[in-house]
Nucleic acid binder design. Sequence first.
DNA 1: ATTGGCACTCGCGGCAATCGAGTGCCAACG
DNA 2: CGTTGGCACTCGATTGCCGCGAGTGCCAAT
Lengths: 335, 335
Amino acid sequence: MSERRRESVLRAIVEGYVSTSEPVGSKALAQHHDLGVSPATIRNEMAALEQEGLIAQPHTSAGRIPTDKGYRYFVDMLAATAVQDSHKRAISTFLSDAVDLNDVVERSVRLLSQLTRQVAVAQYPSLRESPVRRVELVRMTSDRALVVVVSADARVEQATIGVPGAVTEEEFERFARELNEAASGLTPEALDKALSGWTQRHTTQPWLRDVASSVVSASRGGTIERVVFSGTGNLTRQGSDLKADAVTSILDALEEQVVLLRLLHEMASEGGVSVRIGRETGQAALAGTAIVAAGYGTVTSSALLGALGPMRMDYPGTMAAVRAVARYLSKVVET
Amino acid sequence: MSERRRESVLRAIVEGYVSTSEPVGSKALAQHHDLGVSPATIRNEMAALEQEGLIAQPHTSAGRIPTDKGYRYFVDMLAATAVQDSHKRAISTFLSDAVDLNDVVERSVRLLSQLTRQVAVAQYPSLRESPVRRVELVRMTSDRALVVVVSADARVEQATIGVPGAVTEEEFERFARELNEAASGLTPEALDKALSGWTQRHTTQPWLRDVASSVVSASRGGTIERVVFSGTGNLTRQGSDLKADAVTSILDALEEQVVLLRLLHEMASEGGVSVRIGRETGQAALAGTAIVAAGYGTVTSSALLGALGPMRMDYPGTMAAVRAVARYLSKVVET
DNA sequence: ATTGGCACTCGCGGCAATCGAGTGCCAACG
DNA sequence: CGTTGGCACTCGATTGCCGCGAGTGCCAAT
């Protein structure tokens, strides 16, 4: 009972089940995957694998299918698979003519969902440390103004704040100029100090505090972390194991975002391409599904990109696609 | 055979089928909906309704279900239904503390999906005629700049353009100032003229044309029209008639956006709450589904909001909810 | 350790019988 | 003439049964 062979059997079972979506038995396995052993031997190995909890049989008289643990073992013994050439080409043509960050992320997620035939999710870069490039204060009505913050990496954040009607146009313009001078080029930490100094000098104008705080929050993290997704149709597309109520809870979880964000954060800390299978997600709503994710971006602005689908998933292919898109995305975001 | 009664029968069939999702027969109908007639009479009416193509029977020995046309007739004879008090309260509490337009639209769509238990869709206001409030030109790197346009209704649009490296900081700043002066307060038409004049005066700087065109396109329509949606989980939630492949094509259509946008545009022209049932949508992907939509916003910035679900839908309730949210949304957007 | 053989399990597809909801039609009634 | 009760008929859904075959586990032989 060489360890070697047992792994081959597991691999064959996973591959067989993934491609046919039907439990695979000892006979078919011995025939097709030309490992020079008889069905009986394979049955022995299978029994052992089942003992270890790596495979299971749906009913007594059926073949075996991998369990969560089985998929996990399979993934762990996987060497990195090369990306298909067609995929490579798709990535560069699809992403080359994106116009801004929004567009890049949106295209990426759409592309990834097509390559993997799964639901693709992407978290927007959170831009923790992005310095402020410019701040604009625009008065919209007599009692409301818009704060527009342009960060060094071409992101534009906005917020609405209240302004006392008593503030004249000239005063307002002056404050706007001062603000711009005080804030330009500063990182969030420096910004915080500089602006608190600024508001201190104008204690008669309490609304400036709102302005300052919105600028600071825009520079650090910007808008609330957001997740976009694409390819939800793949969840119900023919060949998906997922039952209707499973799909429902996945869709709900996607829209909830909170659940997903927490999970992605956890995965982010692992580096490289990280995979969560079934229960490993820790989310009841995601039972029966697996997520493949990879970080993208630089140290200063990092986020995640991934694919979500039924546990019965082409892991090598999906991992390769996720890795490739993440890598390409990193390049684009960095420049 | 009073016209009156036949309509009652149709109404009863629709209501029955909507609530139970099972074909309704003459017997059950006579009993539950206390119209003082015998099953036999109802059968006669049913035969007539079937003749007119308003109802149909799935199999010979089953009750009747409404056809597209039947639902349409039902909807047309519907008087406006009052909104539930709980819904009213939900709307004001849910939308009251939204911070900006994005937030308002996002909350609305989420809310509507909860109230109707359908997929809610919303188109962002397209702001056709919104004058420009301010234009900022920010140089990001030596050869790229960001154009930020703030429109009079507090929308911020952005675009990236290329700048020749030869342009100095001083020149750049001067152009930025000129642009701002030339563009402020102008409507798209005036803007177009003013900016073409401006670029004419600087024929040595062809990149200014890019700037001008992005400002103009930002002021009219702004970014590409976008549709957001929420509640996709409702498509597969228990009680939905939709079969898996129907759900797939709906999800695909939602992500496609183009299809949906065209449909919404058509519906926009009808005013009030407009309903499209089954084939009426004109989209093969939306067979078996119905859309209830209403416009929101003012004359200058209008867009649509709606609910999409299986044809077997609570039309009165959905229409009331859509109407209510659209009305509330109009109020918020207007101010 | 591997293998062939063998009895056993059990899901699935096909088939027949039954059931019952619902219909259409017709004759009778006010 | 519209309404109603009665009745024969249709046909999908359910149930029960049977045989098939894939797949297993175990055991004895190599």
